[in-house]
Amino acid sequence: MKRLAGWMLASPATLAITFLLVIPVAITVGLSFGSPGQGDWGIVQPYADFFASGFRRNVLWRTFTVAGWVTVISLAAGLATAYVVARCPPWMKSTLIVLAVFPLLTGVVVRSFAWLVLLGREGMVNQILQATGLTDGPVAMLYTPGAVIVAMVYIFVPLMVLVLVGVLENIPEDLLQASSSLGAGPVASFFQITLPLAVPGLIVGAVLVFTASFTSYATPHLLGGTRQMMMGTFLQQRALVAFDWPGAAVVAAIMLAVIVATVLVMTRLARRLNPMAT
């Protein structure tokens, strides 16, 4: 009886996700494999082709490094900011949180576009560099990995701040009081108590940012262009420009594998490192 009622209520969502997500994605993954007789590698021949191409390896490697840098920088900036925000008096805290949420509500295209304006030849960054005499002429900043990293950090820092404020606020206040009553100053308390207890939350934030930047399209498209192609832009190029379905399917399957592996490994790690559990 309960079972039936539960299934009835859950079935529309279950069917929608099964038929419109699980099966189509499974078809894509299936498409990424070759036929058994083909080439030296049999069904994994398309993957062998992918890794045999220096250009494609570069795209994958670039995506890893860009996403890695974005994650590390966002973590550092986000943690420092969240630490201050979490410690502010209540009214200031809510203001700062609203100010961090606002950019999140604004689309990725709009926010990437802002950096297109800022980093262009006539952009504000170049104007400032020249006005202060740091450089003589305009510096080409667009279509470099740096531009992609800066814009992505810009996009993901608010998310990181919000996640980490939550994480820091979950650390019971009396642990920090206990630590200071035992003689630990603010710095010692941060490194010996706050940071170790925040590690699971930091991992969650890092996974969020890493997976989102690894699979992003709009930012590398606008700020990296075709010269700094990443997996997202490469997938779009294979599918919609070259109409190379199997090639696009390989890119999609590799992205999926990287994301699933990252999430599985890191959530397991976060659970292991969580002392509050056990």
Binding site: L175, Q177, A178, S179, S180, G183, A184, L197, P275
Partner: peptide
């Protein structure tokens, strides 16, 4: 607070969950 040198016992114990019993006492 951290310079006052007062031994404080909390209602919720406030033991550091990531440290062993010995490490808690040695903190």
């Amino acid at each position: 607070a951290h310079q006052r040198d007062i031994g404080l016992v909390f209602q919720n114990y406030a033991l550091f969950p990531h440290l062993t019993v010995r490490e808690n006492v040695a903190f």
